[in-house]
Design a protein around this nucleic acid. Structure first.
Lengths: 350, 350
DNA sequence: ACTGGAGCTGAAATCGATTTCAGTCGATTT
DNA sequence: AAATCGACTGAAATCGATTTCAGCTCCAGT
């Protein structure tokens, strides 16, 4: 029961509530004997301090704000679960906000975080810059960016190696003989989008190829956009032999488009994608993907925040996690070497 | 900013904080003129009352506890999102707890709800009975069951028509000519599992058939169990021509098993399942499913709770939502009518 | 022996709201 | 003219913790 108040413990231990508070907060200046008595009394009564009263007095709630785009996206679901696990273990509550990729909603919630005086904030920002963190700074509320970076390099950050991951994925396409490669990516205003494009570029360039802009499209990471862009790219003549999709929702949209266009994978078009989800092993063919360690991402971010809270002056840290290539069947060795590859760029139209 | 306190508003309006409180709570006994002044002052200062202080004084936090089995299950994700939307709109926060289908964890969290003095609790119980709600009752914290029922009929409940849905789904199999039907279901200790079995039974019985117990297995609604049970059923001789799977995670497991066994759908075995998920339309063949209105489920539950809070004496209500049959390709007309159907039961071995 | 300081303790202030209670004012009743 | 009542208002108590501040004891240093 939560009925027991601090004065009840104090009475039972024969001390004042001040002493009880000191003992429970592990503060010095309490005789060991009293400390024992208080601890015993608290134990016996099953005392649990009221967070509400504590928060009112200290002006700081044990709450971690978590701003993500959408909890219905399994990528974030797993991340959220990790944050909650860590938070609960340290007696923090989590205040979850869905920004829906909408900067205004994001700002609204950020202001709310200040008003609610949360202890710290984890954010997967809708864009790299323009996010107003003045309020947080003034209120001395630490911020950790997760999954996507912020322009401001003074914030702790946890991200995956998007450049390397994308590069590896595209290299896998190249190794299988594909040269005419299209891509659907999140926009460059989101760091993960830009970095994945960078990885694509590096992979191609390393083999003396150039990205074909007519086959490369970017858009908000939502399913509808993936569908639209895939239809656009695959409706062109000529169309690419392979597609690199840079986000799980875009992938789902692209798959729908490919189905509706009556194309087969990997025969008509090969596919590699960023992010793995349970079902991607079950579709036919299974998708070759770069799996992100989503749970780890959330865990690392939450732990980074807690460390920052413990020591506000520690140097800014950036954690870089490595994604994992999972090879399935959506990309098989391609036999088309008869055609002169040197013309790929020359025949470009965009 | 949240810097403005009630006394600031009071000072600005030239009244006491008591009057401000009365105005903002819409209580009587305030001169209309003062009311206006207070409202104006509050508006100008952008006053937002501190929930912390309010909670301490009223001994009631504006928090809705939400106990589900696992936020990583998309079924619940959507439900959670609905609850949060409704809650936020009414200035409630949501306290989310993952029970992981573990009754002990569930009980722990229920006790925590009491300790935290939440306003109300939404629960998708791990089992029908044995859930100890004494604490909640004593603390007068209302409870709403969602997705699954509780034995105690005095609690408000929001569920889908599991019997009807399962029956409709199995009838669809029967209409396509299948007679030898296996099933993988959640256990009868969970009401949805029992009800879906009931639906199966009704559908069969209505056509003069009996369920074949050798082909019917139940287990905790997790993927691994779906895999295990599907292998078990499909490894038998003879094996059923069709499978009815009663839960999304079980379905995912079953699909893996079918793949690993090298069976094709619907050629070797047809499949219908409860619950729809985005990817079920994308696998090949697309799955014929009974889609549950998950968002609606959450919304209805949250709203029911709010209504109960407004009027604690209103009669207990049960909301029954209707699932929707989505026909895809995992179950096609079956041609095997040459075989005498009357022997189906006679040839049973379990 | 006196001073200073460290160790320890509890009374009381504090956080920001709600709510009780006592009281004022003006109109109506007796 | 006094009593009564209803409408209205604000001072102060209250929720349960933390923290300040003042005071006490005891011991070391001069």
């Amino acid at each position: 029961m939560g009925r027991v108040r601090i004065v009840d413990v104090a009475r039972r231990a024969g001390v004042s509530s001040a002493t009880v508070s000191r003992v429970l907060a592990n503060k010095p200046y309490v005789r060991p004997e009293l400390r024992q008595r208080v601890l015993a009394a608290a134990q016996e009564l099953g005392y649990r301090p009221s967070r509400v009263a504590r928060t009112l007095r200290t002006q700081r709630a044990r709450i971690i704000g978590l701003l993500i785009s959408d909890i219905e996206n399994p990528f974030f679901t797993s991340l959220v679960r990790a944050v909650e696990d860590v938070a609960y273990a340290h007696d923090y509550a989590v205040f979850l906000c869905n920004t829906d990729e909408n900067p205004e909603k994001e700002q609204l919630y950020l202001d709310l975080m200040v008003a609610e005086r949360v202890t710290g904030v984890l954010i997967s920002p809708t864009r790299e810059q323009g996010v107003d963190c003045q309020g947080l700074q003034q209120a001395q509320i630490p911020l950790v960016a997760v999954d996507r970076r912020l322009r401001d390099r003074r914030v702790d950050t946890v991200v995956v190696d998007n450049v390397g991951g994308a590069r590896r994925l595209v290299e896998h396409l190249l190794d299988d003989g594909y040269r005419e490669i299209g891509a659907i990516l999140p926009p460059p205003t989101i760091t993960s989008g830009r970095e994945r494009y960078q990885g694509l570029w590096e992979a191609l360039h390393h083999r003396g190829l150039e990205p074909r802009s007519a086959w490369i499209r970017t858009g908000p990471p939502v399913q509808a956009e993936g569908y639209r862009l895939a239809r656009e790219i695959l409706g062109r003549h000529p169309r690419p032999q392979a597609l690199f999709v840079g986000n799980n929702l875009l992938t789902m949209g692209a798959l729908r488009a490919i189905r509706d266009l009556g194309l087969s994978i990997p025969g008509d078009v090969a596919l590699v994608a960023f992010d793995d989800m349970d079902w991607m092993a079950l579709v036919n063919p299974g998708l070759t993907v770069m799996a992100q360690p989503t749970y780890e991402l959330g865990r690392a971010a939450a732990e980074l925040l807690l460390r920052r809270l413990e020591d506000p002056d520690r140097p800014v840290e950036e954690v870089l996690l490595t994604p994992e290539l999972r090879i399935r069947q959506s990309c098989a060795p391609h036999l088309g070497a008869g055609r002169p590859r040197g013309e790929v760029r020359a025949s470009g139209q965009g």
